[in-house]
Design a protein around this nucleic acid. Structure first.
Lengths: 169, 169
DNA sequence: TATTGTTATACTCTATAACTATA
DNA sequence: TATAGTTATAGAGTATAACAATA
């Protein structure tokens, strides 16, 4: 069961009758709050795995593994960071031996990212962890409700980052 | 229309065919990503309003307005921070004249938070902004889909922070 | 002149532990 | 001894602008 991290929470009675004011019906409030909780939980589940803290590293690892030669600017757009923020992520992951940079043949300004053997092994290892963590974090959702959330939030995500909408099967 | 903040994004063609690997079906990925986008957008909408950056301040302001004498530890639990993180928020807001601390009559260790006139005015001003921003951020959701998201994410949120589940009307 | 990647910097947030004062 | 609030600090994330090399 997912739990608050703090050792002891306040008396349940003290909090039971607190209303959230207008935030009760503000979707972004839940997204912002759950983000903190789910991120902390994921960090715990990935503890020691050379990837933790921030969506950037996991996404980068999986995307580079899936798309050899992908540019960091493309990843930046998908994880909603700017290019300068990506540099540090790639620097760090390159130092860790998870991926390598190689100049693009056609455009010498650009460079592609490539996974290493170590990086691929790590990717294979974290994939099931990431999937399971996310599902386990929402035990009070049915499979159908879980799918619904992914569909609806995914729709907004894709629009914002510029990915094409998924065509219903 | 909500847009990416970066000046220019990469060629749409370069990104259109990028698959997200397993993250495609990972709910926490969308929550973590959308959190960044929706938080940035909210900051812009609240620009200059003495409240911005982080869920903490807005939630604190609205909760103190709604529940005079509420303790910071209760707010901490609702916004998923620890007490030490709350201190800075309350410090700052007290300096800004938005709220005041007053020792609890019954338990001198504890202290209640109370809104000021200035704080109440600000609360009244930001409420519609926060509600509108959140709805506007998801233009591709129908009202029903929007309600569904709030219901489902709210359920998980309430469990995690220890609020009672809402009884279906 | 525009773009890719990089560097530098300042700022904020987060996490942890230890401290105080009351109970 | 346990709790409410506080302080201090180290680490990580974020945002911005300016830069070099290439197109």
């Amino acid at each position: 069961m997912v739990q608050l991290k703090s050792k002891r929470s306040t008396d349940p009675e003290a909090i039971a009758h607190v209303g959230l004011d207008v935030l009760e019906n503000v979707l972004s409030y839940y997204i912002r709050s759950l983000n903190m909780a789910v991120s902390r939980d994921l960090d715990e589940k990935l503890d020691g795995l050379e990837v933790a803290k921030g969506t950037g590293k996991i996404t980068t690892l999986l995307l580079v593994d899936r798309h050899p030669g992908i540019r960091s600017s493309v990843i930046a757009q998908l994880v909603m960071r700017d290019r300068s923020a990506m540099v540090r992520v790639v620097d760090q992951m390159e130092e860790q031996g998870l991926l390598t940079r190689r100049a693009d043949d056609e455009d010498n300004r650009a460079q592609g990212l490539f996974i290493t053997r170590k990086g691929r092994e790590l990717a294979d290892r974290i994939r099931p962890v990431v999937v399971k963590q996310s599902r386990d974090f929402f035990p009070d959702l049915s499979d159908e409700e879980h799918r619904t959330l992914i569909t609806l939030l995914g729709r907004t995500y894709r629009r914002i980052v510029g990915l094409p909408q998924q065509t219903p099967a």
